[in-house]
Simulated assay, not measured.
Amino acid sequence: MDEDIEERLRNMAQLRLDDLLEAGCELAEASRLADAESCFRQAMRLGSADGAFNLGNCLAEQERWTEAVDAYDVAIAGGVADARLNLGIVLHELGDLAGEIRAYQQAEAGGDSGGPLGMAFALREQGDREAALAAAQRSAASGNQTAAAVAACWQWCTSHDPSLEPDLRAGAALFPSARADLGDLLLTTGRIEEGRQVLEAGMKLGEVESMLPLGNLYADVLHDDAAAVAAYRAGAALGDAHSHHNLAVLLEQNGDLAGAEHHYRRAIEGGDTLAIRALRELLEEN
């Protein structure tokens, strides 16, 4: 951080509004959130809706959800349309489903294609998959390419329609599940080598969605246990319970019972209920 920004911080009370916003954004980019917050609060006190919006973002990054809601409300009242979408995200963190949906509806009404996409995820989390898909498709129809990728993924999961391949290809770089589903489609249609390459690309990018299916491909089709273990370990390191489970199965098959027990337990902790029986059988047999 250069000396100029430090000087501006020391004289914050004398800064003009534009300087406060500029300094706050520079500080936020440098992860100096407390200092950025001070700049944005001062800007909000001077009546800046943009200052309130940036303050909300700064507070949300610190997971201070309730304070962020208050800041976004000020921004929305001041005419910052983008704050509605961010408000929905924060209300999700607070578990306020009704408020979240309302915020996304208002964002959609204001022409923000992210509104129906946010609504799609909220509805899907509540189990209303039909309404979720419809919301994602509305977002896609408004030009949101990520929403198009999401809709293609959800359709693939229920239909396994090979005609979705162009949409999954287009969305692979936008939504990690689209890459994983593209890999699945390629494997399903017999293009094993290309499917492997797609899933390996996802793994190299750190996309956990590709790691479990890549491990399964190595273990079940290519019979490369070492590569399968590496893929499962990568997924497990990112908290994927199913990767823990499949890794445990492979370790058990190869005689590493202590390792298998460890990963069965981690799978159970992650919510993989099938791992409970597998662990019990391992302990009873050994």
Results as ranks from 00 to 15, higher is better:
D2N: 15
L9Y: 03
R10Q: 06
L15Q: 02
L15E: 05
D19W: 01
G24Q: 02
A34M: 10
D35M: 11
E37Y: 02
E37A: 11
S38W: 02
Q42W: 10
M44D: 14
A52R: 03
L59T: 02
L59E: 03
E61I: 07
E63V: 14
A68M: 07
D70V: 10
A71C: 14
D73C: 12
V74G: 04
I76R: 02
V80Y: 00
A83E: 03
A83L: 03
V90I: 12
H92N: 13
E93Q: 12
G95A: 07
E100F: 10
R102A: 14
Q106T: 13
Q106A: 15
D112I: 03
S113I: 05
P116L: 06
M119I: 06
A120I: 04
R129E: 13
E130S: 14
A132H: 05
A149T: 06
V150H: 00
C153M: 05
C153H: 03
W154P: 01
T158H: 14
S159D: 14
D161I: 08
D167Q: 14
A172P: 01
A173Y: 10
P176W: 08
A178Y: 02
G183M: 10
L185Q: 01
G190D: 09
E193L: 12
V198M: 04
L199E: 05
G202L: 01
L214A: 07
L214T: 06
N216W: 08
N216M: 15
Y218I: 12
H223G: 09
D225E: 15
D225I: 11
A236P: 01
D240W: 06
A241I: 04
H242K: 14
H244G: 07
N246F: 05
L251A: 05
G255C: 09
L257Y: 11
G259S: 09
E261W: 03
Y264G: 01
R265N: 07
A267I: 00
I276G: 12
E285Q: 15
N286R: 15
N286V: 15
